[in-house]
Structures are given as structure tokens and as C-alpha cells.
Simulated assay, not measured.
Amino acid sequence: MPKRLKLTRRFPVAMTNDAYRRLNRFAQEAEITPDEALTFVFEHFNSVTDHENLNHRLRLFKAELPERKA
């Protein structure tokens, strides 16, 4: 029996315009809501990410943060 989709946890999220547009594009392509899209990504995080690529991208992102915040 599938797990029930009950969106009980809410949190304020701040993201870049690019990230927001990408989330909405993914949700639209998958024919689900943005809330459902985020739920899917995080419930299946290990299977939808490549561990090596994730670590590399995270290092790049963290290195760029000071410039992006300026």
C-alpha cells in the first residue's frame, strides 16, 4: 500500500529566481504541484542525485557564496 501524501510540514523558503523557475518548470513537466515536487526530490534524494556530482557542485556553490551575497 502506498504511503499517504499528507503535507504536514511547512517552512518558509527563500530561493533565487533561477531556482524558483526551475522548481516550477520541473513541477509543471511532472504534472505535480511545486510542494509535491519538493517532497519527491527530498524523499528520493539519494536516488535522484549522483553523490560525486553533488559533492562537486556543493563545493562550487559554497566557493561562490561570498561573491553571490555581495
Rank of each mutant, 00 (worst) to 15 (best):
M1I: 03
M1L: 09
M1A: 11
M1H: 13
P2I: 06
K3S: 06
K3L: 13
K3P: 07
K3W: 09
R4F: 13
L5R: 02
L5Y: 08
L5Q: 01
L5N: 08
L5A: 07
K6I: 02
K6D: 07
L7F: 15
T8F: 06
T8S: 03
R9M: 14
R9H: 15
R10M: 13
R10V: 01
R10P: 02
R10D: 02
F11R: 14
F11P: 12
F11I: 05
F11G: 05
P12C: 05
V13N: 05
V13S: 05
V13M: 02
V13L: 07
A14T: 10
A14L: 14
M15Y: 06
M15S: 10
M15I: 03
T16Y: 11
N17K: 14
N17R: 15
N17V: 14
D18K: 10
D18Y: 04
D18N: 12
A19F: 10
A19K: 05
Y20A: 11
Y20E: 09
Y20W: 12
Y20N: 14
Y20I: 04
R21Q: 12
R21D: 09
R21L: 09
R21T: 07
R22A: 03
R22P: 05
R22D: 08
L23Y: 02
L23H: 05
N24V: 05
N24S: 01
R25A: 08
R25E: 13
F26S: 10
F26I: 05
A27R: 00
A27C: 00
Q28R: 13
Q28V: 10
E29D: 07
E29Y: 03
A30D: 02
A30Y: 00
E31C: 09
E31F: 07
E31W: 06
E31Y: 04
E31A: 01
E31R: 06
E31K: 10
I32Q: 02
I32V: 02
I32L: 00
I32K: 07
T33V: 04
T33E: 00
P34D: 00
P34W: 00
P34M: 01
D35H: 08
D35S: 15
D35T: 03
E36T: 01
E36C: 03
A37P: 04
A37S: 04
L38K: 05
L38F: 07
L38A: 06
T39Q: 12
T39K: 03
F40Y: 08
F42A: 07
E43H: 01
H44G: 00
H44L: 03
H44M: 02
F45G: 05
F45I: 00
D50Q: 05
H51N: 14
H51K: 15
E52M: 03
E52N: 04
N53E: 14
L54F: 15
N55D: 09
N55Y: 09
H56I: 12
H56D: 10
H56P: 06
H56T: 15
H56W: 15
R57A: 07
R57M: 04
R57H: 10
R57I: 02
L58N: 01
L58C: 01
R59E: 08
R59I: 02
L60A: 12
L60E: 11
K62L: 04
A63W: 11
A63Q: 11
A63R: 13
E64C: 11
E64Y: 12
E64I: 10
L65I: 15
L65M: 15
P66E: 14
E67R: 13
E67C: 07
E67F: 13
E67S: 12
K69P: 09
K69W: 11
K69T: 14
A70N: 12
A70M: 02
